[in-house]
Design a protein around this nucleic acid. Structure first.
Length: 114
DNA sequence: AACCTGACTTCGG
DNA sequence: TCCGAAGCCAGGT
């Protein structure tokens, strides 16, 4: 059996476990789910079925700590949701990953170089 | 089966 | 530091 299904479910599970007030990058989620390079797939999962799994989609940002969504296509909504959880944005629209990025406990991860 | 597409990431100029 | 190109993964057509 291919691993794609597992990846999907693992990714969903990981996204669900992102605590309020924290964020995770696409790459980190992909990494934890077992495919370090599948960041795009994580994005796909969010856009296609965040509703289906009640995922906290707004807690996922790109590697620079910015919202990947374009203005008018969810950007403002995501930013608002995050601000409601206490996340502060800089003038350029980015947030401080060193403060907000979720660091999962060793349960889920078999991260090699952490 | 082949090609296109995307809420990404990384590297080189 | 900023911009463009290439690499990657999986779903949709």
């Amino acid at each position: 059996m291919r691993d794609t299904e597992s990846f999907y479910h693992r990714a969903v599970r990981i996204i669900k476990s992102i605590p309020k007030g924290k964020v995770a990058t696409y790459g980190l989620i992909a990494h934890l789910a077992g495919s370090p390079r599948a960041a795009r797939q994580v994005a796909y999962i969010l856009s296609s079925s965040w509703k289906k799994h009640s995922l906290p989609w707004h807690r996922v940002v790109n590697s620079r700590g910015c919202i990947s969504l374009k203005p008018g296509r969810g950007y403002e909504e995501q930013r608002e949701l995050l601000e409601k959880e206490g996340v502060l944005f800089r003038d350029d629209g980015s947030l401080d990953l060193t403060d907000y990025q979720w660091k999962p406990e060793k349960d889920l991860a078999d991260m090699e170089d952490f």
